[in-house]
């Protein structure tokens, strides 16, 4: 079934929403395989940052941090984003699943890219700083910076798809997205804290 047919089928429930949906559904979307590849690339790039964190202790810590760093992004992509999609669908926003996947892939890839870019600087900092607390603080700063930029990209992509509705619908979307943002930050922070020993002050 094509996107256009799906949008027209939805028109039986709400004509206004279907109009919006048809216009956004007709917007060219990237093939799903490419979006998943972008998502996986983002997670792979994030593990480079994990390797940099693991360089402080070396050995098994390299692997542990390389696996732990993408986990925060994965939790947001796999748990928080589907939850946002369900909430947005419940309030009848014209967002297609493929568009949601595209937005999540963009956010994850950007966060991974920034984490990989930060890796050389963070490796130098965590290896040369003696205090475990200061090293944890620097690593946390990097994760927050990259996570923030990733979230900004995800929200920008969503905004592109959701722009141009009536004020009431937009205010409901805004609340759903604001709740998602808080939840995404909390979940990512929890995952990173649990899976990155360096953040807990281990040296």
């Amino acid at each position: 079934m094509s996107y256009e047919t799906q949008a027209l089928d939805a028109g039986g429930l709400d004509l206004g929403a279907a109009e919006d949906m048809r216009s956004s559904a007709l917007a060219p979307a990237e093939p799903l395989g490419r979006e998943f590849a972008r998502l996986a690339s983002g997670l792979g790039l994030a593990s480079v940052f994990g390797l940099a964190l693991g360089a402080r202790s070396g050995g098994v810590a390299l692997l542990q941090h390389a696996l732990g760093a993408p986990l925060g992004l994965m939790v947001v992509a796999a748990v928080a984003a589907p939850s946002l999609f369900v909430r947005l669908a419940l309030i009848n926003t014209p967002l297609r699943p493929a568009q949601m996947i595209g937005a999540v892939a963009q956010g994850t890839f950007t966060a991974g890219l920034v984490l990989a870019g930060l890796a050389p600087a963070v490796a130098m900092l965590v290896v040369t700083i003696e205090s475990a607390a200061a090293a944890a603080w620097m690593s946390g700063l990097g994760l927050w910076l990259a996570g923030g930029i990733g979230l900004f990209n995800l929200l920008a992509a969503l905004h592109k798809h959701l722009a141009g509705h009536e004020l009431r619908a937009r205010s409901r979307e805004f609340i759903a997205i604001a709740v998602f943002s808080v939840l995404a930050c909390a979940l990512a922070a929890r995952a990173w804290y649990a899976w990155l020993p360096l953040l807990r002050g281990a040296s």
């Binding site: 890219l113 870019g117 930060l118 930029i149 990733g150 900004f152 990209n153």
Partner: peptide, 10 residues
């Protein structure tokens, strides 16, 4: 590298 990634990301 971080500057380039941040600029691209934003």
């Amino acid at each position: 590298p971080a500057f380039a990634a941040i600029a691209r990301g934003l």
